[in-house]
Structure formats: C-alpha cells, structure tokens
Amino acid sequence: MIASKQKIAIKGTRHGLTLQLDDQCSYKEILGELDEKLSSNNQAEDDQLINVTIQLGNRYLTQEQKDALKKVIREKQHLVVDSIESNLITKEEAKEWKKHAEVKPFVKVVRSGQVINIEGDLLLIGDVNPGGKVMATGNIFIMGSLRGIAHAGVDGDEKAVISASFMKPSQLRISDSISQAPDYETDGVYMECAYLDEKVSKILMERLQDVIKKRPDLSSFERRMLNG
C-alpha cells in the first residue's frame, strides 16, 4: 500500500516552527492533518512559547479560514501564530501595492506654503523653495533644488530615500526620523541622497551612487519609469 503524500511539513528554525502546507489538497484535509500532527507533538508544561510561521504556498485563504488555522494551533500548548505567508494576494491587495509602488511625476515649482503629498514614489521636475514641502509614502527624487522640507517614507518606510540635484533643505524627514538643516561649509551640495542609517538611527547624506549600493531596491525605480 502506497503511503499518502504528507500534506504538512513541520520544520524547526531558530525563530520557532515553520508549517509548510501542501497547496494542492483540500482545506479540510489540511485542518485534519494539522490537528493530528500537533496533537502528537506533546510538550512539557514548563516549555516556552514557540512562534509558528504558516507558509501557504500558492493557496489563498479567506480571513475566516486563516482564523480557523490559528485556532487549531492556539489550542495546542505553547504555540502561537507569528505570521501567515502566501504567494498569492487579493485584487484589493494588488491595487494597494500598485498604488504605493507607482512613481508620481510632477513638473512644477513648490513655493512657500505649498505642499505635495502623494502615495508611492515622488518624481519632482522642479524646485522646492524655502517654506515649500514635499511628502511621499515612498522615495522622493527631485530634479531641481531642494531648499524646503522633504518627508519620505511617511507611513513608516525606513528604507525610503530623498535625492535632489541640489540639496540645501530646511528639514529632512524619513519615516519618524528628522534631520534639521545641515551646517554646510558651502552653499549646498549637488546630487546628494539622504537615507536613514538604522545602525545609528540617524539621517545621513551621501552620493546617490553610494546610496544605491545600500538600497539596491532603488534600481526598481528605473524599471518602473521605463515601463510607465
């Protein structure tokens, strides 16, 4: 008699347990085998809590189905679901991702008292004058002078950057970090890029070419521009 294919693979990691679910069988079969496998894996009362990551593969689950999975796991002592990962996303999630990944171009001068606030990456062909402000959930690229305020990663993206052809801002912000106007020895700097250094929790400025090495995802900006 041929043994049935294993529907759930349990792997231990330094972060806890990973449950890899077969994405070809029925959801009911997954629940049944999950309950059976976890029931046979008894733990001592004094064991520490173990984080569980569920990998769905190419399977889509509704929120109700995810909650049922979590319930089965929570009923087993010392197990807690840390995350549920899937290769699939909903249309709504795809639209939301696209909205934040899009590059929004503007051709204008942002004057004192004016504000540009967008979702995604901002490409400004023009200047930001003192008293002007540009904000984006993603990166900010300015083909002109930045003399006002720029705030990238508004929703908490600490990997966002701010780049300008001429950089002499009154204030830079990335996520929740703020950098006041630098004490330049010159009248400003050309083609500089500001980024948040997580090691020192400080906004630093370097040449754009050097920052790209630290933020390789910036190369996708060029692809998105070419693909329109």
Rank of each mutant, 00 (worst) to 15 (best):
D197W: 03
P216I: 15
G12T: 12
A194Q: 01
N227S: 12
K168T: 11
L146V: 13
Q171A: 13
S175Y: 03
D176N: 13
A194R: 02
E36V: 12
K91W: 13
D187H: 08
K76T: 15
L61Q: 00
D47H: 06
S26Q: 07
Y60C: 14
D157Q: 12
E192A: 13
M225Y: 11
E158M: 09
M143H: 05
C193Y: 01
Y184F: 10
V154L: 15
L226G: 09
D127H: 10
F106G: 05
A160D: 01
I162A: 04
R74Q: 08
R224M: 11
S112K: 04
L79D: 03
E158Y: 07
K133E: 09
I84T: 06
V200E: 00
E222D: 11
Q171H: 05
L79M: 05
K66S: 09
K99L: 09
K168A: 14
L61T: 07
G132R: 01
G57M: 00
I174L: 05
S39D: 00
D187W: 05
A101M: 13
P216M: 10
S39G: 02
I10E: 00
E33S: 09
I54G: 01
S175A: 15
G153N: 03
N129P: 07
E102A: 15
V103D: 04
V115P: 12
H151F: 01
R207L: 12
V109C: 12
L38C: 07
A101V: 12
R215T: 03
R59F: 02
S112M: 05
A150F: 04
K71A: 08
E185I: 05
K28V: 15
S145N: 13
L21P: 01
K133T: 11
K66A: 08
Y27H: 12
V81C: 03
V128G: 01
Q171C: 13
L218W: 04
A3M: 06
L21G: 06
V134K: 00
G228M: 12
M205A: 12
G148M: 10
S4F: 02
S26D: 10
E29I: 07
E192G: 13
V189W: 00
M1H: 14
A164E: 00
Q65P: 00
V80C: 08
K66G: 11
L146W: 08
N58T: 14
D127F: 02
D183P: 08
K108W: 08
G126E: 01
